[in-house]
Simulated assay, not measured.
Amino acid sequence: MRSMSAPAFLSHYLSRQPHAGLNGSPLRFLQKPGTATVLKVLAAGELVADKLPTTPDRIALPGMTGRLLSGGLVGAAWYKSRHGSALGGGLLGAAVAFASTIVSYALRTGISEKSGVPSALVGAGEDALVLGGGAALLRAQRPAASEWHPM
């Protein structure tokens, strides 16, 4: 639903619980607290920008491209952090981003059209789902003693 939320949540998690699987990887920048902060600011800005009438639909080429890149980055980093294939994770992440973009767009426009609720208000509901879901995922990720390695 939001292109910057997943990278922000993942970087927040990794900056507090670095994973050895990212050591030596170009993706290790996601473990830096400064990266987490920048991504959180970008995610907050996206929450605001999404409500502006001039913001293009998420399925338009620029928005979709951003979501594919974001999903690919998150998938690659998550898989790599677990000593898996960054390429496989990136492809899966991009595919999930594509599917969720299409589905969330259809839901948002459908709810807005059928209920008469302004799209921006439906978007606020999406934001609540994204923030609540991300917070729940962070709480669920407890580091195993063997996974946590300080940088």
Rank of each mutant, 00 (worst) to 15 (best):
R2M: 13
R2S: 10
S3Q: 06
S3K: 04
S5H: 06
P7V: 06
P7C: 07
F9A: 09
L10F: 08
S15F: 06
S15L: 02
R16M: 14
Q17G: 01
Q17S: 09
Q17A: 08
H19R: 15
H19K: 13
G21V: 05
N23T: 15
N23G: 13
S25H: 08
L27A: 07
L27D: 04
L27W: 03
L27K: 04
F29G: 00
L30D: 05
Q31F: 01
Q31T: 04
T35S: 14
T35M: 08
T37V: 11
T37Y: 13
L39E: 01
K40S: 15
K40G: 10
V41E: 12
A44E: 15
A44F: 14
L47H: 09
L47S: 12
D50N: 10
K51E: 13
L52A: 12
P53K: 13
P53M: 11
T54Q: 11
T54P: 01
P56Y: 02
P56G: 11
D57S: 14
D57I: 05
R58A: 11
A60G: 02
A60P: 03
A60C: 09
A60Q: 14
P62M: 07
G63W: 02
G63N: 05
T65W: 03
G66K: 00
G66M: 02
R67H: 13
R67P: 01
L68W: 00
L68R: 02
L69P: 03
S70R: 02
S70E: 00
G71I: 00
G72Q: 06
G72F: 00
G72D: 00
G75T: 04
W78A: 14
W78G: 02
W78M: 09
G84T: 04
S85C: 10
S85M: 05
L87M: 14
L87C: 09
G89I: 01
G90E: 00
L91N: 05
L91G: 03
G93R: 01
A95M: 04
A95I: 01
A97Y: 01
F98G: 04
F98C: 05
F98L: 12
S100N: 13
S100M: 12
S100Y: 09
T101S: 09
I102V: 15
I102D: 08
S104V: 04
S104F: 09
T109P: 04
G110H: 09
I111C: 00
S112L: 05
S112D: 07
E113M: 08
E113V: 10
E113W: 06
K114C: 05
S115L: 10
S115A: 07
G116F: 08
G116E: 12
S119N: 11
A120I: 04
V122R: 05
G123A: 13
A124C: 13
A124Q: 11
A124F: 08
E126I: 05
E126M: 06
D127A: 14
L129I: 11
L129E: 07
V130D: 09
V130T: 11
G133C: 09
G134L: 07
G134I: 05
A135Y: 09
A136I: 03
L137H: 06
L137W: 11
A140S: 14
Q141N: 14
P143D: 13
A144G: 15
A144H: 12
S146D: 15
S146R: 12
S146F: 12
W148C: 09
W148D: 12
W148G: 04
